[in-house]
Simulated assay, not measured.
Amino acid sequence: MYPFLETKDLTDNLFSDTDVQHPAAFESLEEVVVKIPNSIVHLINNQQSVELASGVFEIIRIRQGGNVVAVLARIGTEVQWSLAKDEAVVKIEGSCYYFNVRVPLLSDDGVEPDDLINYGLTIIGKGSEELDRVLEEYSTFSVKEVDRAVVEGGSPQAKSPKKQSKE
């Protein structure tokens, strides 16, 4: 009653000779752009900071053909998030970073409000200079100084955030 199909019939000639693009144009490639050992990632909210993972922090660029289709930040295999030009990344002091990640949530009434997830990254050691360059390219990156007097219990003195300039 129903025609019999072989699996090979479905995959043979998937891309005909008349197609403009070749199958090689659809191959994905994962490139490690930055690799920093001795890093710690925290999930941050208003009340606390919880360590999620520690180890090697990487920025990964995923290419398909000649195009960059995604840029990911990850630490080990436990935690990963995407970087985007419309997401803020703030460098606080020399080796601490704060990432805002917007996640669409579906509410009970069907509306999709945006919710922010905030990650903190602490780098123990070297590697922040190269990371700054990459974050400037793939996110909205800025640098903010922390007033040492406030940290040590003194009176607050406002310091304006510095925008990282491209050189």
Score class of each variant (00 low, 15 high):
Leu14Asn: 10
Tyr98Phe: 14
Tyr2Arg: 05
Asp9Tyr: 05
Met1Cys: 02
Asp19Asn: 02
Pro3Asn: 08
Lys166Pro: 10
Lys91Ala: 11
Asp17Arg: 05
Phe4Val: 14
Ala25Met: 05
Glu31Met: 15
Gly127Asp: 04
Glu87Ile: 05
Lys8Cys: 06
Asn100Trp: 02
Val79His: 03
Tyr119Trp: 09
Asn67Ile: 14
Asp132Phe: 01
His22Gly: 06
Glu167Leu: 13
His42Arg: 14
Pro156Ile: 00
Gln21Val: 02
Lys91His: 06
Glu6Ser: 13
Ile59Pro: 04
Gly94Thr: 15
Glu136Phe: 09
Asn38Ser: 09
Gln64Ala: 07
Ala70Met: 06
Asp17Ser: 12
Glu58Asp: 12
Ser107Trp: 02
Arg61Met: 15
Thr11Asp: 12
Ser155Cys: 01
Val68Met: 01
Ala70Lys: 10
Arg74Ala: 09
Lys162Gln: 13
Ile92Thr: 03
Arg148Ser: 08
Pro161Ala: 04
Thr122Pro: 01
Phe57Arg: 00
Val146Asn: 09
Val69Asp: 02
Asp86Val: 10
Thr7Ala: 15
Arg74Pro: 04
Leu52Lys: 05
Val89Phe: 03
Glu78Ser: 12
Ile117Arg: 07
Met1Glu: 12
Gly65His: 01
Gln157Tyr: 06
Trp81Met: 08
Gly154Glu: 13
Lys144Ala: 14
Ile117Gln: 09
Ser128Trp: 07
Glu93Pro: 01
Ser54Ala: 12
Gln21Arg: 11
Val69Thr: 15
Tyr2Val: 10
Ala25Arg: 01
Thr11Leu: 08
Ser54Tyr: 04
Ile44Lys: 10
Arg133Met: 06
Gly154Ala: 03
Ser128Tyr: 13
Val69Ala: 11
Ile75Thr: 08
Phe99Cys: 11
Val33Pro: 13
Asp19Cys: 15
Leu43Cys: 08
Leu43Thr: 03
Gly65Tyr: 10
Ser82Arg: 10
Asp115Gly: 02
Asn13Glu: 11
